[in-house]
Nucleic acid binder design. Sequence first.
DNA 1: ACAAAAGTGTTTACTGTACACCCATGA
DNA 2: TCATGGGTGTACAGTAAACACTTTTGT
Lengths: 221, 221
Amino acid sequence: MTDATGAGDAIRVAVSTVIFSLRTAEDGDRLMLPLVRRTRTPHLGQWALPGGWLDPAEDLDAAASRTLAETTALKPSYLEQLYTFGDVDRAPTRAISIVYWALLRSDLVDAQRAAAGAPENVEWFDVDAMPPLAFDHNRIADYALWRLRNKVGYSRIAAGLLPDEFTLTELREVYETVLGQRLDPSNFRRLLEGSDELVPTESFRTGNHRPARLFRYVASA
Amino acid sequence: MTDATGAGDAIRVAVSTVIFSLRTAEDGDRLMLPLVRRTRTPHLGQWALPGGWLDPAEDLDAAASRTLAETTALKPSYLEQLYTFGDVDRAPTRAISIVYWALLRSDLVDAQRAAAGAPENVEWFDVDAMPPLAFDHNRIADYALWRLRNKVGYSRIAAGLLPDEFTLTELREVYETVLGQRLDPSNFRRLLEGSDELVPTESFRTGNHRPARLFRYVASA
DNA sequence: ACAAAAGTGTTTACTGTACACCCATGA
DNA sequence: TCATGGGTGTACAGTAAACACTTTTGT
């Protein structure tokens, strides 16, 4: 940056978000993301990532949250910047997209839809069955999914898909759904119990069989 | 993104680069980065990261390379997008900075300076002794350094700081300088030799003692 | 011959994984 | 009492760290 009055003209700045959640399907929970059907050219009628233009008076994170709420009525449980896409030919006229990725607790999806009224032109898609998207959004969604799967391996990010309290089996199933592979229940238990980030509560989830202890993540580890 | 004619006005887009190289100091090689002294307001006279405004007709990577060359006459050996900084109050008037981080082979620094003529207002600083920088550039430089140290641990990125061929001791010293800690020579050797990414050559580095075999990284692993 | 760096071998501890097994509950 | 998921114990394999040791060169 050399000046505050330079030649920054004619470049429009968009902010988009790839937001994941777990949604119940025929064969158990699936990792899904909401898409918005475009109502304008270019790519009119095609599915696209939720987003909008950056307002000159708002921070980037705020723009991601605002445009996500405006298009889908959803508020993310976790939000992180992903990458800025800016190839000259990615849209008919020059536009760069600052893309965020986000997680939404599964227990909040329907509550938020109910509170805001189901928005038009929004539909959830399984990450393993994505339609063709507008612009370079397929590439963007793939990259976000890669980052999510990567980060699940070395952080407690998966908690962003669950309520505050959960059983170890529920947490393991989140990992299994996101990563697309089975994990050994006993080893998973030891790994997470020994991590000092997970604390047992005195509550139990009761069901068909032996009750399972509920856990929560520590506040600020 | 909802439209190609939206309200993206009044937001200027800059591209900056944090480029690292190894430079010889009194106490051995140090990890350093070049800064540019500002010749305009705001922050006139302060040190800042090399960069410039994004041209509407160029890709983001190209803008990073171009602005780096214009301000420092350097061409990176490795270049990767870091993060986009866009807080409303990070500059007097709204400007977002798409920041890249880069590595420069130590054998090319002086060659490039000689070829292009030493640029004005550029100086190299030890990453452990940074001056106060313009805007939020201290925070940006810190983040880039964190990313470099992180990535050195799980990738062969360190090769971007060395010539094509090098001894294992030279490579280990790069790791030690970047990470700021000593590594066991024999364990380092076994780890890297067994990685299938490093291939031995028939050349040797001759010196005061037993000659050391030169290695190179495989082309496309 | 000696110093110093190059390079090899061995021991130990730790971590991830597989899997056998016991426990507690609802039906 | 039985089926099922909750939860514990153990054994094995692969990897990382520590460090003793041998090899090869210049002086």
